[in-house]
Design a protein around this nucleic acid. Structure first.
Lengths: 342, 342
DNA sequence: TTGTACGCGTTATCAG
DNA sequence: CTGATAACGCGTACAA
């Protein structure tokens, strides 16, 4: 009684495999009588179709590939949560791969997923130009790509993320309205959306006629956490010894924001008395920080959900050729906690 | 030029599919001359074997299933990182599923993975008795299971985790040595390893003749974060209004520890002046908290790596019958930061 | 050393 | 409404 297959079911019931197959897929060709018999027996025997045979036959895999920078990033984990939710709905499996902010690893992952014959890929690119040629080729060969989070790539496809410019603009404006004037903006080097975030920030300053000089903008290394900390530490030291006057720090990503607070504590710079801090962050721990961290929060799960929906849209219409690609920019939410002066 | 298959390669080279197949798998039956030709051509054509056909043929899938409570848990994310590392080495893919602390979802996930024909499963069980019967059945039917993190299950198999008793014992002892006497221990309700952690804690107290009453032990709900916070908040309120005298709080898991700090800050209970805090935690943010959180840290990635190695061991020896299962208990590391008085 | 032929479990086509 | 048959791409006895 090893494996229950179509054949074994057919034998049990005195039917042919094709009849059983059709019955199980609720084909109109089969009498409801037979369907009932087959279904009952299949359930009884706990029949599970062999996915590989199915995939081999149909060409599809019912699997989508996901490539993110790192799984141990709260924001990404939340997105994956959303992805899983909708993927389940459409009965997709998914394979997660990590690019670790490295374009070469990203390339390998893409090729790997493609070789596995995934139906489509959800990608948060390493940077705006990484592997564009490969991605285009994959699209042509019938493997649709949907970008999420980092949606500044020049690839022509669906993109799902947030309006980084606006989120940044509004947060900055809030800080300005509560009296902050000398800002330090810390962004991620080489990441395109960092530019949008910086631009939103800068626009708010300009609109309020607040001066800004280049030493108020740090583009720090991502991918290597130690280097990042060192870079931030260096600038904060200047704040500590008053060679750089700052009253508000704006962290451009989840990881940057978290590290800012830790380093400020190390240097014994009081938050928010000496300096306010606000940052893009989706960590549940933001509230646990002391002072709790004011954040610009992204609808991470919604990004994940929408990304799958977009992919499904392409997948379901594959044959119908021409698709109008769109970019969805969701709104961010600003949560003011205790790291910012009122 | 659609798909490159064995057949197409064979045609190109004027060979048969079987020769090509054997050449590609480096069979001794094929002349090194032919092998070179085939390999070169295959590389040229970017031939990728169809996994589904291969799997269908061989029965295996080269895929392992992973079931964890939640992907947005730093500790689990780190474990997955370790898993990925070793899985890559053995050329395994992996599918991640989340049980969300729910035994029914765990069951569905197990069945799903089994139906997919994964080679084996890495599982961090919802609790010590969840789905034991199913797991045993799956093992019998040739799907090996390796447990990690929560290794108190009665299932007979390889298990990889940490020595929770000792980690807890030593941490408590440290706090005792620095003068703490009135402890509050917060564990996760229904999770077996919480008992080990509590027992280690209790033993340290006993060995030092420190009295302990039941209201110094809170078993809080996991799976629903709001409920957890409410439960913790309630107890901490007693500390605040002095109806419960406590000078040290011991958080029994990553999530618990983080929430403790947040709630203490909310209630304006000074750490470590009024109360010291130490907790099991693997969050990178521990250092970013203010005061930074003293932690008992688990070698998460190593747990992941070892778990895959154990699984591979079973997989490679499948035919050789009798396997001696073992339980690996790695050591924890205590990192004292500023949340504990010296 | 190479080629032939079959089967893994499924779906799809076509005939009955 | 049902059944025989082919095919998906691969690996492997077995034959040459």
């Amino acid at each position: 009684m090893n494996h229950v297959t179509l054949k074994s079911l057919a034998k049990d019931l005195g039917l042919s495999t094709s009849t059983v197959s059709k019955a199980l897929s609720d084909s109109y060709e089969i009498s409801s009588e037979t369907k009932k018999r087959v279904l009952a027996h299949a359930k009884d025997k706990q029949y599970k179709p062999n996915q590989f045979a199915k995939n081999l036959r149909t060409g599809g895999t019912n699997t989508i590939g996901i490539i993110i920078s790192s799984i141990s990033n709260t924001f990404m984990a939340q997105i994956v949560q959303g992805i899983q939710e909708v993927a389940q709905k459409y009965e997709y499996d998914f394979i997660i791969m990590q690019s670790q902010e490295d374009a070469d690893i990203e390339k390998k992952s893409l090729e790997n997923l493609f070789a596995k014959g995934v139906n489509g890929i959800l990608l948060s690119p390493v940077h705006e130009t990484s592997n564009i040629a490969l991605l285009e080729q994959m699209q042509e060969e019938g493997c649709p790509i949907v970008l999420f989070d980092r949606i500044d790539s020049s690839l022509n496809t669906h993109k799902v993320g947030v309006n980084n410019f606006m989120g940044s603009y509004e947060a900055t404006q809030l800080l300005i309205n509560s009296g902050h004037r000398r800002f330090l903006h810390i962004g991620a080097k080489g990441v395109g959306i960092s530019k949008d975030r910086f631009n939103g920030f800068k626009k708010a300053l300009d609109d309020a006629d607040i001066p800004f000089s280049n030493d108020q903008y740090l583009q720090c290394t991502i991918g290597d956490i130690e280097t990042m900390r060192k870079e931030i530490h260096e600038v904060f030291s200047k704040i500590k010894n008053k060679s750089l006057e700052i009253d508000a720090i704006f962290g451009g990503s989840d990881i940057i924001s978290a590290n800012c607070l830790g380093i400020l504590a190390e240097l014994d710079i009081k938050v928010p008395n000496e300096v306010s801090v606000i940052g893009f962050s989706n960590s549940d721990l933001a509230f646990a920080l002391n002072p709790s961290l004011s954040t610009i929060t992204q609808p991470a799960e919604e990004i994940g959900r929408l990304a799958v929906e977009k992919l499904e849209k392409i997948l379901s219409k594959k044959r119908y050729a021409h698709i109008e690609f769109e970019t969805v920019e969701l709104d961010t939410t600003i949560v003011l906690r205790n790291s910012t002066r009122k």
